[in-house]
Design a protein around this nucleic acid. Structure first.
Lengths: 229, 229
DNA sequence: CGAGGTATTGACGGCTCTCAAGTCTGGTGG
DNA sequence: CCACCAGACTTGAGAGCCGTCAATACCTCG
């Protein structure tokens, strides 16, 4: 999928070089401003980063580990909106309150940036303003792609999820998932049983292998992509 | 839902003639710039406004009528991302290409604004820059809400859809839907048969009445809200 | 080695899709 | 003004996919 590329590229994971379709320098210089304002903070497994409805004081960039954003419906079900991997930014809305919650998935380190500082900077530096807009638009595109997933079959959802994670992580065929089956289920709008059964089906079909439950090897990407959008 | 309110307010509801917010109100000067750049264009029923993958030259604001954005999956299914009613803006992404298609639902009039002009203006006028960001963030929030719909039951999806349309249209109990059952189905990730059956169920349960197939009366909002998020 | 959380597997049921009639509605032309 | 037609909508019957409930296996950490 395109959006993950865009997001990763634009935010420039320190380890990854930049390549992008927006202006080559505007993203980078804005980003350096972003990083200059940030303070690293550590979080433990399942620790809350912010809660639904809380004032949106900060914006976050993952340094190491991973985070999830989610919303709990009135019937108790949890929908995960997104997973955030190193280099990616979250918590950036326009209102003064978050409209979802965020947690660290495992032991993680985040760069924490004061929202007001970013916005103040955007008033004078239009590169920062453009960065805020770009980040929000990339998030929009990501959510739109995610929405398309939710109307597909279980096999298609899981296959797309694996391909997406492979692209965003090492871009190797071996994926070490930071999240549990329950997280995957809540991200894809399925149950853990269906996730588990589907992974078994894909393994039986020789599209993947699952050496341990957190490690998945894509042995036949073409078979997976056949299920893709 | 909050976002529709925010969006409507920000863009000036059609009940107020568009020309009025060119008034030198400093808080809305960004919008007046937006409107000053726009040219009204007429579209006929089902006419394409832009196609998936086309260069994103323009941004659109509905004056009268309604529009839908959608994406066609490789299996031929169509997912409608959003409906746009008078006063609402669409077509605003950050890349230089649209990543979905847009059509007029019925005979419609749109204000068409050159994207490059908006972006150029944002370089010097940070209120315009803030407007672009705000519009994008509101769209993001709308899509996030939409995503939550797609994991719910058919009854809940239809009930939420009706409440949403009621809020965005007259905010009366009588809704005149601009779109067909097929449009609703593709918006909610259901089939037309399920839409039809669900409306019948809601009517039987005395939550709504359906005098004609495009007109729906909310006779018991509390019953509908019980199915809400 | 034991315990508790996590993941897998199985049986069954329900919700929604599919396929297939019917019915209504809105627009057109006589 | 009315009859007619095509598309849109409704309703029904059956099937399939996924959710639920339950039991078992696995893995991690004390």
């Amino acid at each position: 999928m395109l959006m993950q590329n865009a997001q990763t590229i634009s935010l420039s994971h320190p380890a990854k070089p930049l390549r992008q379709w927006t202006a080559p320098d505007s993203g980078r210089s804005g980003l350096s401003a972003f990083e200059a304002l940030g303070v690293p903070v550590s979080y433990t497994r399942n620790e809350e980063i912010f809660g639904d409805g809380e004032p949106a004081e900060y914006v976050y960039q993952v340094v190491s580990g991973a985070a999830r954003t989610y919303k709990v419906l009135n019937d108790g079900r949890r929908q995960i909106g997104a997973f955030y991997l190193p280099g990616e930014v979250f918590g950036l809305g326009v209102g003064d309150a978050h409209h979802y919650s965020a947690e660290a998935i495992g032991k993680s380190s985040l760069l924490v940036v004061k929202r007001s500082a970013l916005i103040a900077l955007a008033e004078t530096d239009h590169k920062v303003a453009h960065l805020l807009w770009t980040l929000t638009a990339q998030e929009l595109q990501r959510v739109q792609e995610h929405m398309l997933l939710l109307i597909r079959s279980a096999q298609e959802r899981v296959a797309c999820f694996l391909l997406e994670m492979a692209e965003r992580m090492a871009e190797a065929d071996v994926i070490d998932l930071p999240m549990s089956r329950q997280d995957i289920a809540d991200y894809l709008g399925l149950t853990i049983e269906t996730i588990s059964r589907t992974l078994t089906q894909l393994e039986t079909a020789a599209a993947i292998s699952v050496p341990t439950c957190r490690r998945i090897v894509l042995t036949n990407r073409k078979a997976l992509k056949r299920l893709h959008a």
